[in-house]
């Protein structure tokens, strides 16, 4: 392999520049997007609207952080949408129907989601099955379980549960706080601990990671378990937001989670990801939804625009970063 060509860009060495853009390139996209939408409708950058957007993206935020881990190790987690439904109906059965304390209902719901995450990871790591196939099938099982548990009926929640979405602490909505806390914890785990290093190593080159003493099995199971746990947290926010548990909630949510991860620089080839990148990806996906309303585009066009913006962002990022991303 030949040494990269010498030369400087903006006073930085080429390789340093490439890594700088790899880290921060996507934030340029976000800033351009904010300016563009704000030019159309200045109300977009009002404090009230931004808080509103961030509250809304907190659900996808939980899913995307988990998804990012699974994509980083070279896999995917397609169960997250179904997890939203399952945890919701479990909370409905325990809190509304059985009259259990809210905390107990949440613990059971999140616990079950975590368990399903573990099962995904176990199948993938133990039997060397394709993550796509395992999570595609498990997604059916999980949504089916939600149907069985709810009997196909929506279970409504009382005000106490809804307050978890609309309530505020020091003027900040609870979901925003949850997003912030989860982001900080994920950042620390991913960038400051051995576990984060091992996840990146297994994703980058599983053979080399094993030959360096990393347990591939453990890392894969941990990533999917965490994804399940985070989907559980997202489901609690979802339950509070919608005020009901239904087995048909959360359909297609995995798409936005994958989009946020990928826009945020997570490579499908594995081994490349950053948590700030994913956070920005989560914001960009949220801005697309909100921006379409702000600009006043017919809602029927939403899906097409979302798809095109995702492809455009990733292509732009690739152009900036050169071939570093596959």
């Amino acid at each position: 392999m030949a040494q990269k060509k010498e030369g400087k860009i903006l006073g930085m060495e080429r390789e340093t520049f490439r890594q700088f853009m790899g880290k921060y390139g996507v934030s340029v996209v976000m800033v351009v997007m904010i300016i563009a939408i704000a030019v159309y409708n200045p109300r977009f950058i009002s404090g009230a609207n931004l808080v509103n957007v961030i509250t809304q993206i907190s659900i996808n935020g939980m899913l995307a952080f988990g998804m990012c881990l699974c994509i980083t190790i070279g896999g995917i987690d397609l169960t997250v949408g179904a997890q939203l439904a399952l945890v919701g109906v479990i909370m409905g059965q325990t809190i509304t129907n059985a009259g259990m304390p809210i905390v107990v209902g949440i613990l059971i719901g999140v616990g079950v989601a975590t368990l399903f995450g573990f099962i995904n990871g176990f199948f993938i790591a133990k039997f060397n099955m394709f993550p796509f196939v395992v999570t595609l099938s498990m997604q059916l099982v999980i949504r089916g379980a939600a149907q069985v548990i709810s009997g196909g009926k929506a279970i409504t929640f009382g005000q106490a549960v809804k307050n978890m979405y609309y309530g505020k602490f020091l003027g900040i909505p609870y979901p925003v706080l949850v997003l912030l806390v989860v982001f900080v914890l994920m950042y620390i785990m991913f960038h400051w601990t051995k576990l984060g290093r091992y996840i990146l190593a297994v994703g980058g080159n599983a053979n080399a990671a094993v030959a360096s003493g990393v347990s591939e099995f453990k890392i894969r199971v941990i990533c999917h378990t965490l994804s399940g746990f985070l989907a559980g947290i997202g489901a609690v926010i979802m339950a509070a937001k919608t005020g009901s548990g239904q087995s048909n909630l959360g359909v297609g949510y995995e798409t936005d989670a994958v989009a946020a991860s990928v826009i945020g620089g997570t490579s499908f080839a594995g081994g490349i990801a950053t948590m700030p990148g994913v956070l920005i990806g989560i914001f960009i996906v949220g801005f697309i939804y909100n921006g379409i309303n702000m600009i006043g585009i017919d809602a029927n066009w939403q899906s097409i625009i979302r798809g095109l913006v995702i492809i455009g962002t990733v292509m732009l990022d690739m152009a900036i970063n050169g071939k570093s991303r596959k």
Binding site: L200, N205, A208, A211
Partner: peptide, 21 residues
């Protein structure tokens, strides 16, 4: 390429990988 390095990670991360524990 297969058993030695994670090519898309930094030199630092590659050197420290087996030595973290």
């Amino acid at each position: 390429k297969n058993y030695g390095l994670c090519l898309f990670r930094s030199i630092r991360e590659n050197i420290s990988l087996p030595n973290l524990p």
